[in-house]
Amino acid sequence: MMEIFQYGFAVRGLEAGLIIGLIAPLIGMFLVLRRYSLIADTLAHVSLAGIAMGFLLGLNPLFTAIGSTVLSSVIIERLRLSRKVYGESALAIFLSGSLALAVVLISLSKGFNVGLLNYLFGSIVTVTQTDVYVIAALGTVVAILIWLLYKELIYITFDEESAQVSGIPTRLINTLLIILAALTVSLSIPIVGVLLISALMVIPVVTALQFRQSFVKTIFIAEAVSLFSVLVGILTSFSLDLSTGGTIVLVSLLIFMVTLGMKRK
């Protein structure tokens, strides 16, 4: 098992994976409790269009993914606030619309289909050194912002109206949260892939919620579940030559089911 550290790509994958494992539940906590889990999935599909664009234009797909998700997240939030479209419909429009765009872009340019599969389901092989730097830098930004805005985020999540009355700039904080979600989704792509990202943001949080602890403790439990899943998932997938993203998600699901089983007793 230790031979994993002899491979540069595997070490890069572990580094990137652990950073993602750290920030995904931080954002996921607020999305899950606001019944907004689906936003992660939507932004993931948007990022696929971004990746396809990156391939087509010969740019780093991570950058084009970040650009497209951040832009879309702001538009989704605007649409939701305008009340011209139901919040969920806005998500559905973006989810299918961006997938359509991605498919058309992919058909325009032939020859990156193998690479694309890695982006769909995640593979530590795709993680470049640049990716690790970008993930580390933006991951730090996300973590610091969540820490700084923690009080506002928890208040808005618990009771948005009272938070607004107490003078908290709820619109600004909501927009920031969705942008941070977009960043996290984009950064997670190389590891877990477009189709499995929401699992990483949702499952550890839902698992932690089963313990019925304080908000702070719930975050720590979610972090533990997430980091454990990423670590065990990457090591297992490396040893047994399995899909990285799929293995990580299955490990976290296993923990979730064990937690549910323990509760029964």
Binding site: E152, I154, F158, D159, S166, G167, R212
Partner: peptide, 25 residues
């Protein structure tokens, strides 16, 4: 209309009352 499964202690809920007064960051 509030989520009874919300993970917060009584102390955490009452703390929210201070947040608006403290200001951002």
């Amino acid at each position: 209309n509030f989520d009874v499964n919300f993970p917060a202690t009584v102390f955490e809920v009452v703390s929210m009352g201070r947040y608006g007064r403290k200001g951002l960051f």
